[in-house]
Nucleic acid binder design. Structure first.
Lengths: 213, 213
DNA sequence: ATAATGAATATTTAATTGAATATTCATTAT
DNA sequence: ATAATGAATATTCAATTAAATATTCATTAT
């Protein structure tokens, strides 16, 4: 019991430090946040933080991972709404991803900096996120197949293809190019086109050389 | 006649300067290339360059625009091959775009730096490029409709949607994430899916609530 | 023993300034 | 008049160092 008690206490301290750090990272960014400030916010010495974290970057990495988790939870929610068709789930998925991406870029600029910095050191964080999004897409596809909405042979490769098609809406850098409103319209156009492909029945119009005018 | 003569001479000098500049930009990058070096390569004084260009950035901007032009010409060629079906043209278009993008990133790193720098000052260069690519896509679509390969109502909005879907293959930054081989596979998957959407006949499977098991 | 600290050390950032480079301009050559 | 130049000026870059910050550790408190 004693050891459990201690581990829980440890986690509480870790959480307290991370919460304080995140507030400062959000407001001032990674570089302008000092370990001394984080420590002061937690009413402890700077040195004591190092009992709980290896270094500043570890704290930032965990903050970023948490943010990504939160973002993914939004998407998961939309991707599994019981009152929605598979098509609606797919559209919701894409628009939510876009909204998240835009928010990170424009509202949460400091977090975006942090994300850029951390993911350049730990690309596996991004890969894990993409893998999770593709799982969600696959689930939407399987749901669509089960309801008869979609005709899809290979849900894994199709989920990959869909993610590639909508990746541009999940890359904060691209948010520079157009206002959100334009991106929404573009995302909707892409979803419309994808939905046609997904409900494709296989009755391909054969191309006959020279027959049309 | 005299004035024409002079203008032609002017253009010849401009071309000579730009050629010399491009060689240095390619090898050493924008910052490590000095106006003095460019001038020496052209056997003229530094000051004389300013008779032909407003400043160093203008020279770089024109070099970049030329490079983009060259890249687009490759794509144009593929997009209008007489011996190819519309589907083949579309696939060629995407794979060529990807190849260009990858080359710029990995082989022509210095030019990529330049491109990044110039397009941050002149986003219209990128917008023009995207507009031209969308025109080419539209031409492929119209060709596909004319041969009966594609069923597309609105070629303009569909061309936009296709560009959005494949934009990730046209963003040098993304070349970091996977090797070219993987990107090629992804691009092919996306094209496969898009082609299904394009040849979609409109006979949509209706989703009937609760009817499947 | 565990948690925490203050002080010492190592590393990073920020300010300074001299050197390199871009740009301008008065003057010269054609 | 047009083209070109050398020298003057403005701007940017890079090396230097002082200050700030991250990290470690010996010591103290619980």
């Amino acid at each position: 019991m004693q050891s459990t008690r201690v581990i829980q206490d440890d986690q509480a301290v870790r959480d307290r430090i991370m919460a304080a750090a995140l507030i400062r990272f959000r407001q001032y960014g990674y570089n302008k946040t000092t370990m001394a400030e984080i420590a002061a916010d937690c009413d402890m010495s700077t040195a004591n933080i190092y009992r709980y974290f290896a270094n500043k970057q570890e704290i930032a990495g965990l903050c970023v991972a948490n943010c990504i988790q939160d973002r993914i939870r939004c998407v998961e929610e939309v991707a599994s709404r019981v009152d929605c068709s598979a098509s609606e789930r797919l559209r919701g998925f894409v628009l939510t991803l876009l909204q998240n991406c835009h928010d990170t870029w424009s509202k949460d600029l400091k977090i975006h900096e942090l994300l850029l910095f951390i993911t350049s050191e730990h690309p596996e964080i991004v890969h894990d996120k993409i893998a999770r999004l593709q799982e969600l897409l696959q689930a939407i596809l399987e749901y669509g197949v089960s309801t008869g909405e979609f005709q899809v042979e290979d849900t894994v490769s199709t989920a990959r293809a869909i993610y590639s098609s909508i990746a541009v809406f999940d890359i904060p850098l691209s948010m520079n190019f157009y206002p959100l409103q334009v991106f929404r319209a573009r995302a909707n156009e892409v979803v419309d086109l994808l939905l046609k492909g997904l409900s494709y029945t296989g009755k391909l119009q054969r191309y006959e050389e020279g027959s049309p005018p």
